[in-house]
Design a protein around this nucleic acid. Structure first.
Lengths: 159, 159
DNA sequence: CCGCATTAGTTGCAGTTGCAACTATAATCC
DNA sequence: GGATTATAGTTGCAACTGCAACTAATGCGG
């Protein structure tokens, strides 16, 4: 079986979704390795910590909304953090379904120690680009993020 | 427990690794949904098909090298494709460890039908950007990819 | 040649993830 | 105000993933 002469070509390493996936995976693994090794923290847990550090007192559903994680992932990350004493879970006054999540001192301590590592890694990565290029990349990335959210599944009827 | 006044700030939605991960996931899910639904194909399988369509006759190890997938993922994707008759597996003459992989007519058929969908999705995504911006984004992305490969785990001694 | 290291690929197992079903609580609407 | 619907969060289960151990075949040093 050999390539049909008229097949439209798609080279994986010029295909944007593939390239994005490779970059995101490489970067995430680099960070995940460091988190796991030093702080016994998974990426979902780290995300929850980061969100709660910026906005204490959120409910799990709020975390879902701000992180593009699904609610099961949040639930388990929260459970793990609570189990290891890095997060406190209370019940919202007036709505006993909702939780009120906040970091404990141990949670804050993890956050304070990770942030410099995370930012240092980000800087090392972005050092590849000039400040102008960094700004451009971030701006373009924002627009693609926005667009990707609006776009439905590939090949949708509404193409 | 409340935020220490002096904690360095890290806002998740300005953190590049996080943003990359969200974009890559959104895009991959959009594509994966379409592949699975229409062609009963996983993303790893699709990658193997795409590579073999461009370069028939590779061994599994070659596919690993070209795709940033690990060899277990490739092995299973290949097994799945072979099981469903979309890929043929032969033994290399002169080295009976190596396989020689190629698409069957059914494999080619899947490829021919997916490529337009995949490219259409990519176009819809990139339509957000002007042609100039597209070129810039791709160029910056390439450089970040390159740099991320060189960079080790975060917080390495060799910071 | 013979043993030891190396490479190709597979398989087992353990941990993770994602969906759907479930429980509990709250809101809505006759 | 009681039935219905909706929301918050958890749990069970099945599929996926990733690592390490394994088999099979080859290469290499002496």
């Amino acid at each position: 079986m050999t390539a049909p002469a008229n097949a439209p070509a798609l080279s994986l390493d010029r295909f944007l979704p593939y390239r994005l996936s490779v970059l995101a995976n490489t970067v995430s693994s680099a960070l995940a390795g460091a988190y796991a090794l030093r702080f016994d923290l998974t990426i979902p847990q780290w995300r929850v910590v980061a969100v709660l550090a910026r906005t204490p007192g959120l409910a799990a559903a709020d975390v879902v909304e701000r992180t593009a994680m699904d609610k099961v992932a949040v639930s388990r990350a929260v459970a793990g953090l609570a189990r290891t004493g890095r997060l406190r879970r209370a019940t919202a006054a007036g709505d006993r379904r909702r939780s009120v999540l906040s970091l404990t001192e141990r949670g804050w301590s993890v956050y304070r120690r990770i942030v410099p590592l995370a930012l240092a890694y980000e800087r090392r990565l972005l050092a590849e680009l000039s400040p102008d290029e960094q700004a451009q990349f971030e701006a373009l990335l924002s627009r693609l993020l926005e667009r990707s959210r609006r776009l439905g599944p590939a090949g949708d009827a509404r193409v």
